[in-house]
Design a protein around this nucleic acid. Structure first.
Lengths: 252, 252
DNA sequence: GGTGCGTCCTCACGTCGCGTGAGGTGCAAG
DNA sequence: CTTGCACCTCACGCGACGTGAGGACGCACC
């Protein structure tokens, strides 16, 4: 079972040119070529194309789509789950917009006028804004940051929730150690720090021990991190840093 | 109350360059310029920008957005209604995709494999396909067709439903005349034909009497039209054509 | 009174995801 | 045998901006 460009274009609802383009940029190379040099797509290619079109539909640039599809730790099921998550996120966003439009209709009936900021609330408040800017200033050119951007772009709400839960749980285990009076240089604390590092690797970016140590120091030196972490329990940031540094030294 | 590019870009969540671009192409000209040549946006400009971003978000090309926004028979309320309609359509589509993904997950669990066509059903069966192609062949280069494409692009499901109802109602009134034995050249039939023509003007494209006459002839000469029309009542297509031709002659 | 700095301006070229010919090949049917 | 169709490879075009380059304006602080 193999198909020509025309056939594939037919049931995928794209043009032949699009398939040529995907071949050119290496996003979808047909499994084979006929003797005459004609592209021949097999079933696996169709599956891949389906995924490509799905992510494209949701606005991902083709380059990112390629990264997603070639990521070895995303199997077919994981893709379906992720797709479902992305869809529900998107639906939620549109429903909020619809609700905002309804409110606007109400407001107009009553002759209310909105402030400039309010006028754009339709699009949802994605406003880490000035903070985001500083992040770009400090980290924009590093590899780790770029990788994080790439990976988190396709995270759904459920993904974020899971990551948050993981982090909370880890925090609680650190707090338990602190409460028990276990020193941050102890085996147990260092093991937790190691788990912390691996969590970052899984969810955000490749984080070696050295980078992890930098991160730990910043948890204390940058008060915004400190405050945020200490919300779970005062002193946690400092304890975390010490455990991280001890763990880094152990592996260095 | 007037705002600089930077401010507007700020609360609209777009770049300054985007605003420059919209100015260049005439989509959003700021209400005024300062002495130094700086763009100054007023409240009306903000409203317009909000609409622009809304339609852009739903994937309209900027040129079409301009047409929509400058259409004099779309007042603010109408825009809100249309926006709401477009949103619900979109949500419906995404929900269907989500459902399809769920089915795919089920299918995968049971190890079923899908045929190539089935694989792409996720994207909803928009398959006037070969028919669509012929339409393009025959009408692709005419002004009326382009106008129709432009206008129907922003129609929501509700719009289509309304248009369908209008058409059905008109059909029934024609059938009543036929049943009563009224000739298609009668005043009553010609008036209905005129109403039919004006319906096309409102909902699809500028349709003069001459074009209308062509259309009428085609209703009989192209059997696909004939069959479709005669589903409402046998002989309707021919009767419709005769009434249209009589009406066209009356106005010619 | 200079001297940064931040925001604004206008070119003008670069990018992404294709669309759209132009010109040529391989092969089946009339 | 040639006509037609589906395929091929360049290669330029386009929409919606991104991204500097190079310069003007305004204000704040030394």
């Amino acid at each position: 079972m193999s198909y020509s460009v025309g056939q594939v274009a037919g049931f995928a609802g794209v043009t032949v040119r699009t398939l040529h383009h995907y071949d050119e940029i290496g996003l979808l190379r047909p499994g084979a070529r006929s003797a005459a040099g004609h592209r021949r797509y097999d079933d696996a290619d169709l599956d891949r194309l389906q995924r490509i079109l799905f992510y494209r539909e949701l606005g991902f640039p083709l380059e990112e789509v390629a990264v997603l599809l070639d990521d070895p730790d995303i199997d077919p099921q994981a893709h379906l789950r992720r797709q479902h998550g992305l869809l529900t996120d998107r639906i939620e966003r549109l429903e909020k917009m619809a609700a905002a439009v309804e409110r606007a209709m109400e407001a107009r009936k009553m002759g209310i006028n909105l402030t400039p900021e309010e006028k754009f609330e339709v699009f949802g408040d994605f406003d880490p804004d000035d903070y985001q800017e500083e992040v770009e200033q400090r980290w924009g050119s590093t590899e780790a940051y770029k990788e994080s951007q790439r990976r988190t772009a396709s995270y759904t709400k459920e993904d974020w929730k899971r990551i948050q839960e993981e982090a909370d749980e880890l925090g609680n285990r650190f707090l338990a150690l602190m409460a028990a009076g276990t020193p941050p240089e102890s085996e147990a604390a260092m093991d937790l720090a190691e788990e912390h590092r691996q969590g970052i690797c899984r969810n955000h970016y490749e984080c070696g021990h050295e980078l992890h140590a930098c991160l730990g120091r910043m948890y204390v030196s940058d008060h915004r991190f400190t405050e945020n972490i200490d919300k779970a329990g005062p002193g946690l940031a400092a304890y975390l840093r010490d455990a991280i540094l001890a763990n880094a030294e152990r592996h260095g």
